[in-house]
């Protein structure tokens, strides 16, 4: 009797230990996720403050640390995405084979196999999309030179997509019937289109942002080059340097209207949703961005020439 009591106590201790370990792990993971998300958004807020030039040295340091952390997370997510894509390709291949067999054989076994493999392919695709949406979210937070209204809108859409993907994943996991799987495929169509659109919206504004940020930096360096030349230039070269700086200034002045028209196109595509897709906008954006890229390249070449950078 005593022995059974000890055994019972012993088992209870082991069980409670594992429960404690598991729950602690869950709490820690959840806390880490919340912490990570909060840090991502605090970086967004910090970057806004840094953009407004109202930052203290401690804020600047915090901004740098968070930026570094974000860069590490982005690299990690890219690695995860690659590995998940490899898995998806394998699952998709199996799915195609099983569906072909099901359509040609129409046996009960082939139906069972088709259901299982389709579910696996759906879950695999879901995982790739979840990671991809998270990757875009972090890249967007990290990006500079993007109009804040667009940044916030794209971020909220990416968040929404992640939630919808998590819901869809639960539904797929709980489904075991052929008709239900077919219904889930129909249900996914608008979600897939939404994810596709949001992704191209994010990619588009990030492409503009990268050039905008380079232009902002070029403005700062232009001022530095001008003041450096004023300090060092002798009278014989003064006229030549003045002409060069004027040339740079002229090119820089031409840039803002080009950026404005590009942002206008993004705004127009938002208000005209349905007629134009973000995917087509992204493709046309490249044509608009090329002249900006060429002009910026020319400006930097002038800087390199004046400051003799090789």
């Amino acid at each position: 009797m005593r022995k059974t009591q000890i055994n019972y106590l012993f088992r209870t201790i082991i069980f409670s230990f594992f429960v404690v370990v598991a729950s602690t792990h869950q709490v820690l993971v959840h806390a880490q996720e919340i912490d990570s998300a909060q840090q991502d958004y605090s970086l967004l807020e910090l970057s806004e403050e840094v953009g407004e030039e109202s930052f203290s040295p401690s804020q600047m340091k915090e901004y740098g640390v968070q930026k570094q952390r974000l860069a590490t997370e982005i690299v990690d997510l890219k690695r995860q995405l690659l590995s998940r894509l490899n898995q998806y390709e394998k699952d998709e291949k199996q799915y195609r084979i099983a569906i072909d067999q099901y359509r040609s054989l129409q046996t009960l076994n082939s139906i069972e196999e088709a259901i299982a493999v389709t579910k696996r392919a759906m879950l695999s695709r879901n995982e790739v999309l979840e990671i991809y949406q998270n990757l875009l979210r972090l890249q967007l937070i990290d990006a500079q030179g993007i109009e804040l209204s667009h940044k916030r809108q794209a971020l909220s859409q990416l968040e929404e997509n992640r939630e919808l993907l998590a819901e869809f994943k639960n539904k797929v996991e709980q489904t075991n019937d052929r008709n239900d799987v077919n219904n889930l495929a129909i249900e996914f169509t608008p979600l897939g289109a939404q994810i596709h659109e949001t992704s191209y919206y994010a990619l588009g504004i990030m492409a503009i942002g990268r050039l905008q940020s380079t232009y902002d930096q070029a403005m700062v360096i232009s001022q530095r080059v001008t003041s450096a030349q004023q300090e060092t230039t002798d009278q014989t070269n003064e006229a030549k340097i003045k002409r060069s700086l004027k040339e740079i200034e002229k090119l820089l002045e031409q840039m803002p209207p080009k950026f404005e028209s590009t942002w206008m196109k993004v705004n127009e595509s938002i208000s005209r949703r349905g007629n134009t897709t973000y995917h087509s906008l992204y493709q046309t954006l490249n044509k608009n961005l090329m002249p900006i890229y060429t002009d910026l390249s020319k400006i930097i070449s002038y800087f390199e020439e004046i400051e003799q950078v090789r």
Partner: peptide, 8 residues
Amino acid sequence: LDLEITID
């Protein structure tokens, strides 16, 4: 990705 994975 195939956004139209289905059985039937």
